[in-house]
Amino acid sequence: MKLKLSHLITIGALSLAPALANASVITLDFEGVGNQAAINDFYNGGTDSQGNSGVNYGVSFGSDALGCIDSDAGGSCAFANEPTADTVMFFLSGSSVLSYDAGFDTGFSFFYTSARDVSVNVYSGVNLTGDLLGSINLSNNASDNACSGDPTGNFCNWDIGSLSFAGIARSIDFGGAANYVGFDNITFGSTNPDTEVPEPSSLAILALGVLGLASRRLKSA
């Protein structure tokens, strides 16, 4: 594609696991989204345009936001060295619009790779409404640092984009030149994108372990 881009004890455990999930920083790594599929409600209790579903974080995407899988993993995108596994977000028209009804504060971050300049804008309302809380402009970086593919992929260099702001944000416009930019590991509530995304099942196991230790202590008391 040349330079185009075409994550009682039983009752206590069940209640603690969601609390741990809510308390953690949310990272969207797009793994499980179909190749060239509209992300849609993949992270909002629904599915992408190919019927795949992910964790329900209450995050939805506009119809232009697509998933794309590394060509080395059987997909159609010419990127490499992606932060987590094989899938990233990109767009073929318009821009990738994210809406998060619950909102988030402090800031957010992401990885990006691009052969054109990138722009990201954050708004206080869903679907790019309300006040503009902040903007970030990033230069093209796709082949910086003499990077190489894994084993192939022209979009092989990834850099961090981050933005701090005041207020509550509920939507983000990930822009740039269509088909020339990919985003990955979008992280809410932190200006450093996460590269190790815990699954809810892992959080539940952690909760069970914590409660199990507490139970042993009570029995030995």
Score class of each variant (00 low, 15 high):
215 S>K: 12
106 T>Y: 09
74 G>R: 11
97 V>D: 15
208 L>I: 14
10 T>P: 13
140 N>T: 04
8 L>A: 15
199 E>T: 15
110 F>G: 04
159 D>I: 12
97 V>K: 13
174 F>A: 06
97 V>A: 12
74 G>E: 08
188 F>E: 03
144 D>S: 10
172 I>Q: 02
53 S>A: 13
76 S>D: 03
10 T>Q: 10
96 S>I: 03
18 P>Q: 00
30 F>D: 01
107 G>Y: 05
92 L>K: 14
153 G>W: 00
168 I>L: 15
121 N>D: 11
215 S>Q: 15
13 A>N: 10
25 V>Y: 12
47 T>V: 09
112 Y>T: 04
212 G>K: 02
178 A>D: 05
29 D>L: 04
73 A>M: 10
109 S>H: 07
101 D>G: 13
10 T>L: 14
202 S>F: 13
221 A>C: 13
169 A>I: 02
191 T>V: 08
6 S>Y: 12
172 I>P: 02
115 A>S: 08
93 S>I: 02
87 T>V: 09
187 T>C: 06
131 D>N: 14
99 S>V: 06
159 D>E: 14
127 N>D: 14
178 A>P: 04
125 G>K: 05
115 A>L: 02
63 S>R: 01
46 G>Y: 01
31 E>D: 09
44 N>V: 09
130 G>A: 07
167 G>P: 10
63 S>H: 09
216 R>V: 15
181 V>F: 02
54 G>R: 07
201 S>V: 14
7 H>N: 14
38 A>T: 14
167 G>Y: 11
92 L>D: 12
194 D>L: 09
41 D>S: 11
146 A>E: 12
70 D>H: 05
141 N>A: 03
157 N>Q: 07
204 A>C: 08
206 L>Q: 09
72 D>T: 13
41 D>Y: 12
127 N>Y: 11
132 L>Y: 00
201 S>F: 14
58 G>M: 03
52 N>P: 08
25 V>L: 14
160 I>W: 08
114 S>F: 00
76 S>I: 03
97 V>P: 09
188 F>R: 07
59 V>D: 02
139 S>M: 04
50 Q>G: 07
62 G>W: 06
160 I>T: 15
61 F>V: 08
127 N>E: 14
32 G>R: 01
110 F>T: 06
129 T>S: 15
194 D>W: 00
97 V>H: 12
13 A>T: 15
217 R>M: 11
200 P>A: 05
64 D>P: 01
37 A>D: 10
41 D>C: 08
61 F>T: 10
185 N>P: 00
3 L>M: 11
130 G>I: 10
180 Y>R: 13
94 G>Y: 00
217 R>E: 10
108 F>S: 06
53 S>P: 11
144 D>C: 01
155 F>G: 02
183 F>E: 01
182 G>L: 02
136 I>R: 07
156 C>T: 01
129 T>V: 07
150 D>S: 14
74 G>K: 11
148 S>C: 03
161 G>F: 02
191 T>Q: 04
26 I>F: 09
59 V>I: 15
75 G>K: 00
151 P>M: 04
8 L>Q: 13
125 G>T: 06
124 S>M: 06
193 P>L: 06
130 G>W: 07
41 D>G: 07
84 T>C: 07
221 A>E: 10
39 I>P: 03
113 T>M: 00
72 D>I: 06
34 G>L: 03
15 S>Y: 11
59 V>M: 05
127 N>W: 13
71 S>R: 15
20 L>C: 04
148 S>Y: 08
